[in-house]
Design a protein around this nucleic acid. Structure first.
Lengths: 258, 258
DNA sequence: AACACATTTCGGCATCATCGAACGGTGACC
DNA sequence: GGTCACCGTTCGATGATGCCGAAATGTGTT
């Protein structure tokens, strides 16, 4: 791992959290001397990944935008999800999201609007702490290493009053997810929003992401039909990605401790 | 400028152009040893900016997606453009785009669909060689250094048969743009698409971007109304960005040679 | 107008990235 | 099915390069 490149990325991540930062603030957060940070941001600015506003503060630049478009267009999971998620949204009447893990978060890489035609925000690109969403729990349940790393933390952010931050409670939920092949979340990331999600596997039986629906908590459907629809969509996409079985037997047996 | 960070960004840019690349191909394009490139991409992979598919090829990762969302939300020019571009689209019946310069390209940072309700592609994040679009010519006409750098090149890409790649012809066009405060392009980036655009200035009289409309070439309006609408939108946004005059007198007098 | 803060520049030192070569793994072709 | 060739990855020595402290420049404030 190259130190300066790693630091450059750390700077980008800081700028992602706090939108505008002074050089001094950046240096403080990274515990690095002022001049060291300056050298790196100067490089990022020269390439357009970062820009400096009139008051000297730094923010992300247009270069990052250019990159993201290409990611969306070339991502295989997203490509193979397009038609199936569309159809899931139509049949369920819910918004559909596909997410992939990144660190301890889930990044939404595809989003089909609820088909009622109402004004909705485009959620592609947003990131949510994995333990606070059904998408995240679906992935964690079938990715022991990732789950373990997350459960070792004792500072899991509490997004709402219902977010599960207790390690034992979360581990129990993941076991249930493994048994059902489905993960749920109610008011755990956004109050009033509930989700159902199922994991997606690739040819190596790795949980590379998840697909799920979002509904308002008050309208959460009680029939099993929706659950089956979500799971079937995940199975279909997994098959397109080359997965042989769903869920992979090996992952079921080992669980988090493996 | 830090060498390794610069190389890391160069790698991201290569992956942006060619969506999937083998390590050897990357090393070849950058004229660097295999192992040097490997160290850098390993760092990028660890942070999620790059991912490696099953066959070992590298592609951009979900990390870049997360960054782009924040850029869009925090960009001041985009924020101040939102309402005015919406209104321009309604009144003109055309799609509206806002772009900012990045290297020799224009990156589209905002896009209002043509209000006829037809299916249209979201163009946010796409990049177009500046000399091939009205947005780019609007910026270049009022950014002498950038224009000079571009005119010095003799390998300007020809996007369509109508793209102006000759330096003298382009310089003449930029002079005309300076006089009119408007730039046009007909079939120069995409056949069948014509544009009108005007530059946007900030408080320091720097051309930080441009706003423009897109129409089908066959329906290009002949009335001056549209031209005035575009220009007025650019003036309004410039004023919001703190520009005192439009266009700045200083830039008009000096021209490209300054 | 003078101060205080923050950003930027500069140069010496030691670290850290770089590179060539060897290893291990995979797919292709015979 | 075996061998070959290519590709990605690891490793270790070398010296170029990024790192950091301090000084200097610029900016906004009192």
């Amino acid at each position: 791992m190259i130190q300066s490149v790693d630091r450059a990325i750390a700077i980008l991540m800081e700028l992602q959290g706090a939108r505008r930062l002074r050089l001094t603030e950046l240096a403080l957060r990274l515990s690095l001397p002022n001049s060291t940070v300056h050298g790196i941001v100067a490089t990022l600015v020269a390439r357009g990944l970062v820009e400096q506003d009139a008051s000297g503060r730094y923010a992300l630049g247009p270069g990052v935008l250019r990159l993201s478009n290409v990611y969306l267009d070339s991502n295989e999971l997203r490509l193979r999800s397009l038609s199936w998620t569309e159809s899931l949204a139509e049949r369920s009447g819910c918004a559909v999201r596909v997410g992939v893990p990144l660190g301890d978060d889930i990044v939404v890489i595809h989003h089909v609007f609820r088909p009622d035609g109402s004004h909705q925000m485009r959620e592609i690109g947003i990131d949510i702490p994995a333990h606070g969403t059904a998408l995240g729990k679906a992935v964690l349940a079938f990715d022991p290493l990732r789950a373990e790393a997350l459960l070792d933390r004792d500072d899991l952010p509490k997004l709402t009053g219902r977010t599960v931050v207790d390690g034992d409670a979360l581990a129990a939920q993941l076991t249930a997810v493994r048994e059902a092949g489905l993960a749920t979340a109610a008011d755990e990331s956004i109050l009033g929003e509930s989700e159902v999600a199922a994991p997606i596997f690739d040819a190596h039986d790795v949980a590379i992401g998840a697909v799920g629906v979002v509904t308002t908590t008050s309208q959460v459907p009680t029939d099993r039909g929706l659950l089956d629809e979500v799971r079937r969509t995940a199975v279909t996409i997994s098959r397109e990605m080359g997965a042989a079985s769903w869920p992979p037997r090996a992952l079921l047996e080992r669980g988090v401790s493996g």
